[in-house]
Amino acid sequence: MGSAPAVLIRPRAVLILGRVSNLPTVLSNALAGIILSGGAWPDAARAVLALALFYIGGMYLNDAMDVEIDARERPSRPIPRGDASRAAVFTAGFALLALGLALAAATGPRGGLAAGALAAAILLYDWMHKRTAAAPLVMGLCRLLCYGTAAAMAGGRLDAPALLAGGAGLFCLVVGLTYAARQEAYDRLGAVWPLAVLALPLAVAIGAALTGGETAPLALAPLALALSLALGLAIAAGLRRFFRRAPGDVPRAVALLIAAIALYDAALIAAAGGDTAAVAVAAMCFPLTLTLQRVIPGT
């Protein structure tokens, strides 16, 4: 399987293994988690770094645990093709998770507990995602805990209504796209009814735009509605590809929906009356993710 290459991890394999093109959505998740919970804005950089470490570490461990399956179904992945040592990828993955956990724990017990839950969810997904049809639920939980970890690290309210509603929508968005991603290796989609969960994040975003945030009701409602519309168009474009099922449609749709996470985050931040700079940064994470996916595969 080429699992003992001459180098531990080749430079480009470092980026491919970590799916680093999707990191802008981790940035938008952190911003949304902090703002929706009323957390401290100055703590955003630390939360972004911790979530990035968790994301990349989780992706490394995903490849390391899937090496036998990838050798059959996706031989172009770095470990099967000999661009990375499985042992090195395992080591790097666990080290990155440990660094993320330490960074979160340094903010206090709440940050450490939330990060511990996130690390556990990541490990559970990586271990069982090829073994059960319930795996998309665990991946949805991972992204939901990104909100919670960022909020806890920044001293936000974990019971804030905006955070709870937003987290529910994010959970459903990720469950839907993860279900589709499971079919990517075959470039086809089986039953389409599970994709109905993609309607909930759109409903949450529109509802938040219409009702406003707790501290600044309707302050940025027009922008929030516009971002919700952009989210709806992205979801519609992804669904069109899923239903069309032409060659390459499934992976392209999955990549698009991953990028659309940033639009969802931006819409919620705007609806909550968040800083306009935060809205702009989160919104720009959508085109940035799509651009980076052209260089480094996002799936």
Rank of each mutant, 00 (worst) to 15 (best):
V204E: 10
A270F: 02
A102F: 07
A152K: 07
M1E: 13
D249N: 13
A95F: 10
W41F: 15
G18E: 01
T107M: 11
D265F: 02
A92S: 13
P222G: 07
L141N: 09
A40F: 09
A95D: 10
I269A: 05
L268Q: 03
R110A: 15
R131I: 04
A32H: 07
A283D: 00
R86S: 11
A104Q: 09
A271S: 11
G38L: 09
T107S: 15
A278V: 05
Q183C: 14
G248W: 10
A64E: 01
A180L: 06
L257V: 03
F90A: 12
M139P: 08
L268K: 02
A6F: 11
D43R: 15
P287S: 03
R77N: 01
W41M: 14
L36F: 01
R10V: 06
A246L: 12
D275L: 14
P161N: 12
P75G: 12
L223G: 13
D159M: 07
S28M: 11
R77Y: 01
I122D: 03
C172V: 06
A165D: 09
L31D: 09
C285G: 06
A165Q: 14
R77Q: 06
A246D: 14
L210F: 12
M139N: 08
W193T: 15
A278P: 09
A253G: 13
G169K: 03
G212H: 09
L202Q: 14
G155H: 04
L23C: 07
G232T: 09
D43S: 15
A181K: 04
L158C: 02
P42A: 04
R188N: 08
T149Y: 00
R77F: 08
L61N: 04
G166W: 00
N22E: 06
A30E: 03
G33W: 08
L163P: 10
G167N: 07
I9T: 09
S228R: 08
A208L: 06
L137V: 10
F171P: 10
T299M: 07
L8W: 11
I69C: 02
L218M: 11
W41G: 09
N62D: 13
P136A: 02
P247R: 11
L290P: 05
S85D: 10
A114G: 12
L145Y: 03
D275S: 14
A283R: 08
I258M: 12
P161A: 08
M139A: 12
D70S: 07
G111D: 04
E68P: 11
A13G: 05
P297V: 08
P297G: 05
D265T: 10
R131M: 11
R10P: 07
A282P: 00
A262F: 11
L256N: 02
P287G: 01
S228V: 14
R240I: 09
T215E: 15
L144A: 14
R182C: 08
M59Q: 14
A180F: 00
N62P: 13
T291E: 13
A64N: 01
G93W: 03
L99F: 11
D265I: 01
Y60T: 03
A115S: 14
